[in-house]
Nucleic acid binder design. Sequence first.
DNA 1: GCTACTACCTTGCGATGCAAGGTACCTTGT
DNA 2: ACAAGGTACCTTGCATCGCAAGGTAGTAGC
Lengths: 114, 114
Amino acid sequence: MSVTTDAQLLAQLRRGVIEHCVLALLERGPRYGFDLVRELAAVEGLGTSEGTIYPLLSRLRKDGLLETSWQPSDQGPPRRYYELTAQGRTALEVFHRHWRSFRAAVDEVLEGDK
Amino acid sequence: MSVTTDAQLLAQLRRGVIEHCVLALLERGPRYGFDLVRELAAVEGLGTSEGTIYPLLSRLRKDGLLETSWQPSDQGPPRRYYELTAQGRTALEVFHRHWRSFRAAVDEVLEGDK
DNA sequence: GCTACTACCTTGCGATGCAAGGTACCTTGT
DNA sequence: ACAAGGTACCTTGCATCGCAAGGTAGTAGC
């Protein structure tokens, strides 16, 4: 079938949003990758996988929005914790503005009002 | 620069949304491609180009969500008008539900409330 | 016939979500 | 000791889709 499935529909919606949801979660405090996957999975529609998160975190780190530090775990392998840099915080604010305006634009078109 | 620009940020946001904005516009009545580009350009954040719209319309037509008919124009080359099929109308409703829930999910994460 | 506008469409690139697969640490049970 | 299972990291390859750029053609006015 070439018709879009619900899963694909959501995957497309997530584009460009997950990245900033990760930043938003990190605004509340340091997290490690595996944990972020679980936190996002807990939110309806934002569920994603490690294959998405790790490359994403890597990219954000390269762009200077995140810093990392390895820390041992009580039970399991060591974890790589991520936290926001000043630049990351700014990027989050910028996105926040864009998101609000974008959301309003889509609503306007979808609602069909005038 | 590998850091995301505003333009790229918006382009990613548009993913999976423009498609349904087009359906929403067509719900109000038949339109032709060039006109859709202009209507979307009038909405802040949804501005796009012909390189986006034509392949998109083509895809929606192949998937059976749209039907087309050529019609002469008073001034200029003939236009290909698109209109929703029953399947297209259903797809729009389905998206509507997804969008509302997705929007709420993103808001929840961004607002950081609990 | 030249220019400009309208209107259609295609090609090639870049960005990125994801399934699948791989490595390694740690704990528990046998 | 060893196997099994959970935690945690990461990479590869594919598919999707927005877009800049470029191409074709009808119509109107000079």
